[in-house]
Design a protein around this nucleic acid. Structure first.
Length: 189
DNA sequence: TGGACGATTGACT
DNA sequence: GTCAATCGTCCAA
């Protein structure tokens, strides 16, 4: 395993909390976009709501890679969702990035979205469109451009809210959604 | 090989 | 609050 991602070789819900406050940096057409992660959800092989619950398939194979890779999938034939793979190679676990807060290149994200304010990045499909994330980045190594994960110091635990996940039909009771309290970019539904 | 379905979003009543 | 868009994936037959 790569030492660089050792901090993500932990249970996925622990990794999810550690990822809050970290940043995603995207190089796109010579422009640098950067955004801070403010809302996440945890999924792993033992979780009925996870894409990896029934084992490895061509679609979910990048979620079985070692920590620090991207798992991107298409939902409803329209939108892309970004996950950060966690844990050891061979174990299917990852963290869905549900919302981010623009840090750099916000104007470009607004233009890509054709929306403004929190609507630019307050949902998994929205932030993917804002940052130009699609299937081409599925399986990408997040230690290299054009998409990088930048580690940041952990948030104060008292500022983190834990709830059940959104938009799923199985394991609906599991408290595996985490977000930064009072951050306006946290998704609404 | 067919068909049901989805870790969502935006438009509309 | 409700509902359609839209297509790749997966499982049953």
């Amino acid at each position: 395993m790569r030492d660089e991602w050792k901090w993500l070789h932990v249970p996925v819900e622990v990794a999810a909390v550690k990822l809050l406050g970290c940043e995603l940096q995207r190089e796109l057409n010579g422009i640098t976009l950067r955004a801070r992660i403010v809302e996440v959800e945890a999924y792993d092989q033992h979780d009925e709501a996870s894409h990896t619950f029934r084992g490895q398939t061509p679609r979910n194979s990048s979620m079985f890679k070692s920590a620090g890779h991207a798992y991107v999938y298409l939902i409803h034939g329209i939108h892309h969702c970004l996950n950060i793979v966690t844990g050891e190679e061979g174990f299917g676990s990852g963290v869905l990035v549900r919302a981010v807060e623009p840090v750099a290149g916000a104007g470009h994200m607004v233009a890509r979205r054709k929306r403004h304010g929190v609507d630019v990045t307050n949902g998994p499909g929205k932030l993917s469109q804002a940052m130009g994330i699609d299937l081409q980045l599925n399986g990408h190594d997040l230690s290299t451009p054009p998409l990088q994960l930048l580690r940041r110091s952990p948030l104060d635990p008292t500022s983190i809210v834990t709830t059940t996940r959104i938009g799923i039909s199985k394991a609906v009771e599991a408290p595996r959604r985490f977000y930064e309290a009072a951050n306006p970019y946290v998704s609404r539904r």
